[in-house]
Structure formats: structure tokens, C-alpha cells
Write a protein that binds this DNA or RNA. Structure first.
Lengths: 128, 128
DNA sequence: ATACTATTATTAAATATGTAATAAATTAAA
DNA sequence: TTTAATTTATTACATATTTAATAATAGTAT
């Protein structure tokens, strides 16, 4: 597995915008994020720049404007985060994790049923 | 829900030791962690101190030695972390999260079966 | 009672993060 | 072509984290 750059919480918000809208330029990113956050455009530009430095984003110039594309894919980033979360907090044991969510009572009956369905169609081999 | 102190990754390693062994003193904590990590005792003592400052640990003196007890409970900390992980990365949707784990192919057939069992006994009401 | 030493407290310095402000540069307009 | 405006680059500063080193203190042994 690749070594993904470390992406901070604020930077992750930027990544989400780029993943969803790439190719996307600075103005478009700041346009979206100034509406969903309290960040100033300057702050957002700093975050974008850091992501470029970290190798999470690449850009090409469209005249004066930079247009960004992700270098880190959302899927692989999510996978890495999920993996490390599971390891860190549940020793890598998914059953322990699920039990914890159940115990915390954050899951509605609907959600539980939904999980059942998912697992039932996640054919683990032959038997149905 | 209470407002838990922010516990860093390194600090969390200390918390795990205390959760498992409390009441436990500085020497015992450093004894364990110098074996499982590369940290110097000084570093570990710094981490312990920060956890006290943050209100994650309390201590009482046994002559010259400090004996620690957690002020933050493991369960509530885990719950908080699980909650925020689910929100941040899967929009709070547990089915999305499970699908992601399945897609990543990190789950063995055994684990999948285990999850089924858990959900089946997690009676979500009346029907069995 | 005093010195030693084990333990705790304070200080340190580098990197990361949050949150910008100011400076530089380049393109578009006059 | 010079200027103005837009966009990017550099600098800033506070807090958090990692990873200790050094200083102070208080029990313990002599």
C-alpha cells in the first residue's frame, strides 16, 4: 500500500471538495468552502497550498489560475483511515467495533436491518 | 455527553495502559511503555503529566510516588471517537462504512459471519 | 541532620495545525 | 506599455504534539 501524505482535519475538508469537483480551481474551492465554513479565503488558499506541498493535490495553470486534481484518491485515503481507526481503537477487530457501536445505541433499528442486508448479500463464499 | 479532553495519539497509548492497570504508578507505566515503544522514560513522564493537566488522569501520592487513575473512561472515550470517525468519514452512515470495509477486502469470511451473528442477536425489537 | 537519589516539575526545540496577513507576480485593461 | 487587479507566494503567530533534557524537591539512608 502506498504511503499517503498526512492530511489534517481542515485539509480534509478541502480534499472532499476537490474529490467531488475536480478539476477545480482556487476560486471555485474557496467559493464553496466560504459558504460551508467560517474560513477566510486566505486560510483556504493556505490549506490548498499545503496539500500541494504534501503531494495530495496537483495543479496545472489555466492562464493565471491554478486548476487542481487529487493525487491521493478518496477511496485509498478512506481505506487507510478506516484501517488505522480499526487498529488503533479496536485492535483490528471489526466485531468488537460493531459491538461497540451497538452498545453505544447510536444505531437505529433501520440501520441494523440495513447492516444485516449488506452482510447477507456480501456472500462470503457459496452458502446463501 | 461530557466534554472529553483532547487526547493525542501518543497520550492515548498511555491511557490504554492506565485503563487496563489502574491504579498504577509512574514507574509501572514507564516500565510497560519502554518495552512496547521506543519512548524514553522522560517522554512517557511528559505524556502522563499532560494527561493530568488535561484532566484525563488523576493521581494520589503514595509517599514520593504518584499513583494514577483515569478520569476519562475508556468506553466514553471510544464512543466519542467512534462517533466522530463515523461522522467525519462516512457522513454518519454506518451502512456506508460497513460497505467500505467490505469493499476494502479487509474482512475474512469468518469476520463477516461473526458480524452476522452479532446483528442477529442484536434484537432490533420483536421479530427474530 | 545531611547528603544522596528517586521522583516530579520546568524548560526546550522541532514539527504540525489553524488561521490568516502581507508581499510578489502576472494577466488584463487602459 | 504602464497600471490596476487578480492570483499566487511568503511570512506570521498561536496552539498542539513529539520527544526529551535539565532543574527542583522530597523521601531515604547514613
Amino acid at each position: 500500500m502506498k504511503n499517503l501524505p498526512q492530511i489534517s482535519e481542515a485539509e480534509y475538508e478541502v480534499m472532499k471538495i476537490v474529490w467531488k469537483n475536480a478539476p477545480i480551481n482556487t476560486n471555485e474551492i474557496t467559493g464553496i468552502l466560504t459558504q460551508t465554513t467560517e474560513w477566510s479565503p486566505k486560510t483556504i488558499q493556505t490549506l490548498i497550498k499545503r496539500l500541494v506541498n504534501k503531494g495530495a493535490l496537483s495543479y496545472e495553470k489555466d492562464s493565471r489560475v491554478f486548476v487542481y486534481t487529487p493525487l491521493v484518491q478518496e477511496e485509498e485515503y478512506l481505506e487507510q483511515q478506516s484501517d488505522s481507526f480499526l487498529k488503533r481503537y479496536f485492535n483490528g477487530n471489526i466485531a468488537t467495533m460493531l459491538n461497540s457501536y451497538l452498545k453505544n445505541d447510536v444505531l437505529s433499528n433501520n440501520e441494523i436491518a440495513e447492516l444485516r442486508d449488506i452482510l447477507n448479500s456480501a456472500s462470503d463464499g457459496e452458502e446463501k
